[in-house]
């Protein structure tokens, strides 16, 4: 029993000191608001509006599948003692709960005021009528990949601004100004894209997963099928053969896969139909270094080029 108590006391004594130690190692400036973002879009928004007021850790890399993130010990240590979390919610980040619990970050578990759900209020697409795995690994609440729509991202900027202003009220004006500037830049770009890329409307295409749906609808592209037979079920040759027929009937010229999706399935259809296969990410930062607006710019330009349509000029 004596040993028991000694060990408990030892652990108790270790906790505050070690914490002080490693926060000085990894954070540096303790005055900054520590922000966790599950995906690059939220991380970049927090940086854009918070700039020198925040330190942002983004969990999912720009070339990584959000659904496949693993809560490693290093990430658990990084998200410890953070102040604010931006995540999609619904069932996009099933690994988040385990990572937060592993980190002891119960202050950011879903339902806490500083755990900001970015999907709140966004009208959902592809809400399943049947909810079981005969439909694949469906998103139970509907498609959560809403950050692919620039108009949704514009509202997300406001959500990020609201959270930052609430926690940093003394910097409210400067944060709101940055938010307004970002929203205006995005709005200008969006008006130009919707005008210059109006000819994309009704273009049929095929994607790998359902991840592009919000983007496609915004620019009125039409998804005639996915390489996956059902969400997160491996493409089968039977399904792909049928898809090839559909693609021929609908005159599909374009297939989009994300960098983490295996090229085998898109190669299979490309051998049988005359299509361009584009590897595009739904996350900004892919290609490397792109911000939110440049990322949309890149994806739209790539799609236009693949379809032999004129590419919009971002101007000065």
């Amino acid at each position: 029993m004596q040993l028991f108590m000694t060990c408990v006391l030892l652990l108790g004594a270790l906790s505050p000191t070690t914490h002080a130690q490693d926060s000085s190692e990894s954070t540096g400036d303790s005055a900054k608001l520590r922000v966790i973002a599950t995906i690059p879009t939220y991380g970049l928004l927090a940086e854009e509006l918070g700039q020198d007021l925040v330190e942002v850790i983004t969990v999912c890399r720009p070339g990584q599948d959000l659904h496949g993130v693993m809560a490693t010990p290093a990430f658990m240590a990084r998200v410890r003692s953070s102040d604010l979390l931006f995540y999609t919610g619904l069932d996009a980040e099933l690994w988040l709960d385990g990572m937060l619990r592993g980190a002891g970050a119960v202050n950011l578990l879903p339902g806490n005021p500083n755990a900001i759900v970015m999907s709140t209020g966004v009208p959902l697409k592809e809400v399943p009528a049947i909810l079981d795995r005969s439909q694949g690994d469906v998103h139970a609440f509907g498609n959560p990949h809403m950050w692919t729509d620039p108009l949704v991202v514009r509202d997300m900027a406001t959500r990020v601004g609201d959270a930052l202003v609430r926690l940093l009220p003394e910097h409210a004006e400067v944060i709101r100004d940055r938010e307004e500037a970002f929203r205006l830049r995005l709005t200008k770009a969006l008006v130009r894209w919707l005008t210059d890329y109006a000819s994309l409307a009704n273009t049929p295409l095929v994607t790998y997963h359902q991840s592009w749906r919000y983007f496609l609808d915004r620019f009125r592209l039409v998804r005639v099928g996915t390489l996956e037979p059902k969400p997160r079920v491996m493409p089968t040759s039977g399904h792909l053969t049928k898809l090839v027929e559909t693609m021929q009937a609908r005159d599909v010229k374009l297939v989009i896969r994300e960098p983490w999706q295996h090229p085998q399935a898109s190669e299979f259809v490309a051998e049988r139909v005359d299509v361009t296969v584009l590897a595009l990410s739904t996350h900004p930062g892919w290609p490397e270094g792109t911000g939110i607006i440049e990322h949309f710019e890149h994806n739209l330009a790539e799609i236009a080029r693949a379809l032999d349509l004129p590419v919009s000029d971002p101007g000065e």
Binding site: P40, E47, E48, E55, R61, F75
Partner: peptide
Amino acid sequence: MLHPVDPGACAP
């Protein structure tokens, strides 16, 4: 795994 972020780099 980590998307390293240098907030200083984007400060105006």
